[in-house]
């Protein structure tokens, strides 16, 4: 009985979480161009909004937005993941003179609103001619990523240090220990870091709006572009196209999630020297 109630609760919660997504999908296939305010299910279904999405006009230029964001996300993902994991590993396993100082420094930096420093970064990038460029955006997203190392460090703290000692006996150097022993054992946190840093450029709106401020449709990322489709002026003509774009963006990301989730569960349950 309790098990049944638990499953009922889960089903209820899952439907709360899935209903908005269902509405997104339904609207993207519905005939209305603007948001449908009277009925949840559209009267008729069509694929035309997806076709329109692939045909750029002066306001909507989805294929370019997608490619822009993908490029930025791939580079950001690689650089940020490396930075975060390296920093977390150093802070968790290694003992050195400025460790405590650097950790406090990271906390202090995180206490400042990130946007404050970004204003200055924007002016600097403008002087260097890197505003409205993907390079500038990649720099903004990834260069400072390592201050968010704490979650990864928390995980590394649960990995037994005896593994490293065992590896030293075998004659491995620190780099080999890091890449061949600790990282494979830490798949969940590696996956978490990869997911979150890859998603960042897709999710971010504020830094993109600061760096890519030209207003030209082809300079936008997906977030900026889709936002422009639902502003006051465009909403009634482009809302369904916005939904179609949202679906198109979410599909590859969801697939990625499900692949990564498999790693995620397997990663830790397979045996390792713990505790």
């Amino acid at each position: 009985m309790r098990t049944f109630l638990r499953h009922a609760l889960l089903a209820l919660l899952a439907s709360v979480w899935l209903l908005p997504i269902l509405w997104l999908v339904l609207t993207s296939f519905g005939v209305d161009e603007g948001p449908n305010i009277t009925r949840f299910f559209p009267e008729e279904y069509t694929l035309s909004h997806y076709a329109e999405l692939l045909r750029p006009d002066s306001i909507s230029s989805f294929p370019t937005w997608f490619v822009n964001t993908l490029i930025v996300a791939v580079f950001t993902c690689v650089i940020s993941t490396a930075f975060v994991l390296m920093t977390a590993y150093a802070m968790s396993f290694l003992r050195f003179r400025f460790r405590r100082g650097l950790m406090n420094m990271a906390v202090i930096l995180n206490l400042f609103p990130g946007f404050l420093g970004m204003i200055a970064v924007y002016f600097i990038l403008r002087e260097a001619g890197l505003t409205n460029s993907l390079t500038g955006l990649i720099i903004v997203y990834s260069a400072g990523a390592s201050v968010d190392y704490l979650i990864a460090k928390g995980f590394f703290d649960t990995v037994s240090p005896s593994l490293r000692e065992a590896a030293w006996v075998e004659g491995a150097n620190e780099w080999v220990v890091f890449t061949r022993i600790i990282l494979p054992l830490s798949k969940p946190i590696v996956v978490y870091t990869v997911i979150s840093s890859f998603l960042y450029p897709w999710m971010d709106f504020v830094y993109a709006s600061l760096i890519m401020s030209s207003g030209v449709a082809s300079d936008k990322t997906v977030a900026l572009g889709l936002f422009s489709l639902v502003d006051k002026v465009n909403r009634n003509r482009y809302f369904a196209r916005f939904c179609a774009g949202g679906v198109v963006v979410s599909v590859p990301i969801s697939v990625l999630f499900i692949i990564m989730q498999r790693f995620y569960v397997e990663g830790i349950t397979t045996g390792a020297v713990k505790g």
């Binding site: 899935l18 948001p35 939904c243 979410s250």
Partner: peptide
Amino acid sequence: PFWRTCFMAAMAVPQFVSLLLMRNL
């Protein structure tokens, strides 16, 4: 895995999509 996927699906939709959707809802 099914339950986890349900909730992660909500996460997989980028925030600007889900939040802009919410604001229209």
